[in-house]
C-alpha cells in the first residue's frame, strides 16, 4: 500500500495538469473574491431581489460577508480540485496507463484506495491556495473599501480553515467520480455542468419548497459549503440553510466513497483490454 501510494502521488505531480489548474484556480478565486467583496458590501439585496418566494433579503452582517468571501473557493471554486481528482483516474484510461498500473499493482482495491488517498495532499494544496487567494484578494478589497476584514476573528478564520478541508474532500470525490465515469470528456462535461449550473439551480429551486428544502442540504455542493459553515447561496438567502459542519463532511465524503464503490464494482471489475 505504501508503494502504491508513492506511485500514485508521483503520477499526480509529474504532469503539468496540476499546477495549470492550481494557477487557474488561484486567479479565478482572487478575481471572484475581489468582485464579491465589492458587491456584497455595496448592495446585498441585489443578489436576491429577483428570486420569487424567497424571504425578503436581509442584509448580511459584515462578519457574514467576510466569511462568505473567504469560503468562496468552497462555494464556487471546488470544480478545480474535483477535476484534478477525476483526471487522475480518467487519464489512466485515456492513455491506457491502466495496463501498466494494474501490472504493478494487481489488486484493484489497493490501486483505487491509493489513488484516493494520494489525492489528499494535492487536495490540501488546492485548498490552501484556493482559500488563500480568496482571503488575500477579498481582504484586500474590503480594506480598500474601508470595511472590516475580520482577519483576526476566530469564527471567520475557522471557516477559512474548514474551506481547505472541504476542498480536500472535493478532490477525493473527483477520484471516486473518475472511477465511476472513466471517460475524460464525459467527466469534465458532467462536472462543469453539475457544479456550475445544475446544482446551483437545484439548490435554489429545491429551497423554495418545504418538502425539498431538507433534501437540498445533502447535495454535494451544499455539503461542501456546510463543512465551512458559510455559504454564498444560503448566506445570501438564495438557498436553504446548511447542515452542521461535521454532517457536511460526512455527506461529502460519503459521495466520494459511494462513487468509488460503484467504480470498483463496475469499471474495475471488468477485463482490462
Amino acid at each position: 500500500m505504501n508503494a502504491a501510494l508513492r506511485t500514485e502521488y508521483r503520477k499526480l505531480v509529474t504532469t503539468r495538469l496540476w499546477w495549470i489548474l492550481l494557477l487557474s484556480m488561484a486567479a479565478y478565486m482572487a478575481f471572484l473574491a475581489g468582485i464579491m467583496a465589492f458587491a456584497l458590501t455595496q448592495d446585498p439585496a441585489s443578489l436576491t431581489g429577483g428570486v420569487p418566494g424567497a424571504d425578503p433579503a436581509a442584509p448580511m452582517t459584515p462578519e457574514a460577508v467576510a466569511r462568505t468571501i473567504y469560503t468562496l473557493a468552497t462555494s464556487l471554486g471546488y470544480v478545480f480540485p474535483v477535476i484534478v481528482g477525476a483526471m487522475a483516474m480518467t487519464s489512466e484510461f485515456r492513455h491506457q496507463t491502466i495496463t501498466p498500473t494494474l501490472l504493478a499493482e494487481p489488486s484493484r482495491t489497493v490501486f483505487l484506495t491509493a489513488k484516493m488517498l494520494s489525492s489528499v495532499p494535492v487536495g490540501l494544496l488546492f485548498g490552501v491556495v484556493g482559500t488563500a487567494a480568496t482571503v488575500g484578494a477579498g481582504a484586500g478589497v474590503l480594506a480598500l473599501l474601508g470595511k472590516p476584514a475580520y482577519l483576526t476573528d476566530p469564527i471567520v478564520l475557522r471557516s477559512a480553515a474548514l474551506s481547505v478541508l472541504a476542498l480536500t474532500v472535493w478532490t477525493v470525490v473527483g477520484v471516486g467520480f473518475g472511477a465511476l465515469v472513466t471517460s475524460q470528456v464525459a467527466v469534465i462535461v458532467i462536472m462543469l455542468a453539475f457544479t456550475q449550473f445544475v446544482e446551483p439551480i437545484l439548490r435554489i429551486v429545491m429551497g423554495l419548497f418545504d418538502w425539498s428544502e431538507g433534501i437540498s442540504k445533502y447535495l454535494p455542493g451544499a455539503a461542501g459549503e456546510a463543512i465551512t459553515g458559510s455559504s454564498l447561496y444560503a448566506g445570501s438567502g438564495m438557498a436553504a440553510g446548511l447542515l452542521p459542519s461535521w454532517l457536511g463532511f460526512v455527506t461529502l465524503l460519503g459521495y466520494a466513497i459511494v462513487f468509488a464503490l460503484i467504480g470498483r464494482l463496475t469499471t474495475l471489475r471488468h477485463d482490462i483490454t
Binding site: K11, T14, T15, S91, H95, Q96, I98, T99, P100
Partner: peptide
C-alpha cells in the same frame, strides 16, 4: 498499447 502519459 503504448501506455504512456504523453505529458510525463
Amino acid at each position: 498499447a503504448a501506455s504512456f502519459h504523453p505529458g510525463r
